[in-house]
Design a protein around this nucleic acid. Structure first.
Lengths: 350, 350
DNA sequence: CTGAAAGCGCTAACAG
DNA sequence: CTGTTAGCGCTTTCAG
């Protein structure tokens, strides 16, 4: 006995099984319009019995309503983006909306491709990381006719809505805190990512504020790939070998900062007395380190949630559009950015 | 001058703009069938000029080909799942396939809902974490008529294909290594997650192997939420306060293990001489710790890649189905699971 | 190589 | 409350 190749089930099958018209079956299954309790029951039973799963492709085409939200991020390897995704996913949880994600690897051409691909599904909204996009990408986003939320970064010109922090400001405020604490000989340790605009902007804000105070970054060290904690150690050793007089190390992320911290403590170097330290991102990981690393929280979950909420509001018609949410990165001095007898430089930055 | 509300663009618009029939436009845009170079050029120009983005909803309905792969995972908060996603995303990168993800929060009802939702898009394949699903979920997966790959875990009865490691075996092998190293008074520290079947299976494999060797777990400690590193410290302190004689601590993940390690070292406790330690997951983070924690790698990226490759092969028709890929979790003794004068117990486990 | 016709499976818009 | 009629925007199929 051979089973005939199952033709995927349709509304018609449920209709026939229940003796109710396709249209009414559709109404029951979508909870739309008035249907008598009796008919409803019949239909639901038939649908369950058959294990009917509606075809949203047909449904969406007919109704021109799509419940997909396109989410475009540079990478999944950096914990930052899963956190944003997680915020989005949670905020969408009480909705019919489904996130669809695409990864660009920080490459503009790939972003363009992924975006095109996703827009071809006519999603109900787009959440995309960053404000820097190719001309073609911007055009697509602008023409898409759905809410577009650019996330993570607010330093730039959003196409539509925007949620994030100012990374320039984050860099500035960290610089200010370091200067105020009295550190003067600064080293920077970061990732080798020319296309990571947010890291670049933080660095710019940082160096400019330093420059205004007459301070030049004395040493820099970059890495790519590998265990961040280990790299943090190695880079810290290297930068101090080259520039033994540094009194502060600013890391572009907390993980390499943590590695540096472990290294310095093992070397018996007094942190923050001899050398101060700061990272970036506010990973909760840090709470368990021997000494709490100074950091600045990039509000990743909140950004994801806020972005999803904007989309929700737009779809609900509760919002006029062009929301601009500029979150305040929370500076946490921890225990590595305090100096006894810190001189107040009277330095101002606004 | 008001802009008329842009009707979303269709093939017809491109057809009119280029003076070529819709059908031929469609052929050009899909690179399907033979079209003269001249016509092709005309169409491509018109499409680019208009910024035409095809409507895949209509396309998929007409062709009944969908390029979506449904990916269903319990959570994004645990770094494990982003890593699997990342593997999937990378392996799908050279394809037209797009991952769509849904998050279940480890809740079977939610899994059912997410699955139903996703299947209604008639994805070309499903990748879902774990082998434990509700009856309804299994039924949906079995009926879906597309490749289904259950990932992460191989201890159970897959619906279709399956890629992962045996968590029971992972637990057993760790137990064996600990016993072989001569440790006897064992404490376990884990997460409070009754629905995390993989953690449960590891624990089962672990305790059973211990039991066979006549060893009873002496102390247990569980946590939920918060900074894993910090929790690792706290739990380690607690378990040792309650059970001061423990000579080995087995952590259900590397992050709490790392916290424990930092704590023990600060306390001046000799690791692994006085107390041995092991975690689980092989996070590369560990390379930078003051002492390399013993761990077992769960092959997360590889699992994601393998799962995606199975889907690819199935779609390409290169595979008969029912693939079973059982990866070998790599035991790494690091520097925390070695004991001087370890007695060989002659213990066997197969 | 190009076009016309017919529908994919569903839902909006009307009629009853 | 229920059914009928037209498509949604594309692709398949078949004819030129």
């Amino acid at each position: 006995m051979t089973i005939p190749p199952r033709r995927p089930m349709t509304l018609r099958d449920v209709s026939e099984a229940s003796g109710v018209s396709e249209m009414t079956v559709s109404r029951v299954l979508r909870n739309k319009g008035d249907v008598s309790a009796a008919t409803r029951a019949k239909v639901q039973e038939a649908a369950k019995l058959l294990g009917y799963v509606p075809n949203r492709i047909a449904g969406s085409l007919a109704s021109s309503h799509v419940n997909l939200i396109a989410v475009i991020i540079p990478s999944l390897k950096n914990m930052v983006f899963p956190e944003v995704l997680s915020g989005i996913s949670d905020a969408l949880d009480d909705t019919e909306l489904q996130p669809v994600f695409g990864v660009t690897g920080y490459r503009p051409e790939k972003e363009e491709k992924v975006l095109f691909e996703m827009l071809s599904w006519r999603p109900a909204g787009v959440i995309i990381a960053g404000l820097e996009h190719s001309h073609a990408s911007r055009a697509m986003l602008a023409q898409a006719g759905v809410p577009v939320v650019e996330v993570m970064d607010t330093d730039g010109d959003p196409i539509d809505a925007c949620v994030g922090i100012s990374h320039r400001r984050a860099g500035r405020e960290m610089a200010k805190a370091i200067i105020d604490a009295g550190y003067r000989r600064i080293g920077f340790l970061g990732t080798q990512m020319p296309l990571d605009h947010r890291a670049r902007k933080r660095f710019e804000g940082f160096t400019r504020t330093m420059a205004k105070a007459g301070i030049e970054i004395e040493g820099q060290e970059f890495y790519a790939g590998g265990s961040a904690l280990l790299k943090g150690r190695e880079m810290t050793k290297m930068i101090l070998d080259r520039h033994p007089n540094l009194d502060f190390l600013y890391y572009s992320n907390d993980m390499i900062g943590a590695g540096g911290l472990l290294y310095l403590m093992e070397q018996g170097i007094d942190v923050p007395g001899e050398i101060g330290m700061a990272g970036f991102n506010g990973v909760e990981l840090l709470d368990g380190l021997p000494r709490k690393l100074a950091t600045m929280d990039a509000c990743r979950r909140e950004i994801g949630e806020a972005a999803a909420n904007i989309i929700k509001a737009r779809i609900a018609g509760t919002s006029a559009g062009r929301e601009r949410i500029n979150m305040t990165p929370r500076l946490d001095l921890g225990q590595t950015l305090i100096r006894n007898g810190a001189l107040n430089t009277g330095f101002k930055d606004t």
